[in-house]
Amino acid sequence: MANPAPTPAMESFQTVRTADANANPARLKADGVNVFYGEKQALFDVSIDIPEKSVSAFIGPSGCGKSTFLRCINRMNDSIEGCRVTGDITLDGENLYDARLDVVELRARIGMVFQKPNPFPKSIFENVAYGPKIHGLARDKTDLEEIVVSSLKKAGLFEEVKDRLHAPGTGLSGGQQQRLCIARAIAVGPEVILMDEPCSALDPIATAIIEELIDELRENYTIVIVTHSMQQAARVSQKTAFFHLGKLIEEGPTEGIFTNPREKRTQDYITGRIG
């Protein structure tokens, strides 16, 4: 890799940013986010713009705060006792941590897919129909069926399960379960989908299918993916952010980060020296 000498580590911490002229405009922005678990601070002053309808990847060694930050975006940290968030995260200029904001509405707009596939112990159909049902998105049964089928199609699962929509979702293979969870998230019609290491529990073939799916989904959804596989970040994302010890070290177009990291720690990580 031929690249200029990395910038020396600075005394006062500053995220290294590379602008991307081709990037879509950003509707989701974070500004100066700090997260505390009790006394312990888990995230330090994270600011980042997430471009619309593209895939942004958060990478970094485990415990670096990337998942914590992801969970801040749809306020999943609310359910953890003793967790405190300061700073602003805005969607279309609206602060997600505004006291008047409705978390339930927010989570309908920002969906999430978890590390381990977690289908509910119900049928495949019921799994996908769950979101539309609770949010009242379907007027009647045909409407609901339509939503379920189209969500399953978009998640690339429909062909495999169309004969057994009423079989339990827990009976599917791991990769299918994860796509079911993606279909479940899509069914609510979110604008943003957060994915927390969605492939870490899957085999390479299932991983390839999901990655392909993510690439297709980016046409309609803003996707944020946390991964500790740099190859995966390089394959699926347009923008990459590198976290280390609770700090956002560097962010920029994926191309640039992997070929031409400007921070030494980023380079150390992608060349395997820290991790």
Binding site: S79, R107, A108, P119, F120, K122, I134
Partner: peptide, 27 residues
């Protein structure tokens, strides 16, 4: 009931009540 089911339901924008009656209690 594993935490992941609870998280899964909450992340869909279900209220706590819905998570309990529709996911946790059936499970």
């Amino acid at each position: 009931v594993p935490r992941s089911l609870r998280d899964g339901s909450l992340a869909m924008g279900a209220t706590r009540g819905e998570t309990i009656t529709k996911v946790l209690v059936p499970a």
